[in-house]
Design a protein around this nucleic acid. Sequence first.
DNA 1: TATATGACGACGA
DNA 2: ATCGTCGCCATAT
Length: 111
Amino acid sequence: MSETPVTASQAEQRIRAMVDSIPKGRVATYGQIAEEAGLPRRARLVGRVLGGLPPRTKLPWHRVVNAAGRISQRPGGILEQRRRLKREGVVLDRRGKIDLTLYRWKPDWDA
DNA sequence: TATATGACGACGA
DNA sequence: ATCGTCGCCATAT
């Protein structure tokens, strides 16, 4: 059985779906989303897709952080994302870091 | 065709 | 923990 290469639009769709499934109060990393979407080592693509989201999107883009548990530099500034996360109860330490051992979402969990 | 640049990440020093 | 380097790959120039 072979894996048919994923088209760009399919990749985007999968990525959006994964992001949409992150529960409130939990976070996932770019690399994690890529992996779960069947796109290993494509973390940057995840960032690109999020960057292309319309400003009013309902997608919980703020629940995606980098592998260090920090908010990546992004157009519009990191404040909005930090605000949204805090509102959901995600704690950031004084340096703005999130404890992934506590808040990282494991997809197979809730099942 | 070649280089540069990113909402990234793994690794070694 | 921080930093530089390299891998990754879609786009832009």
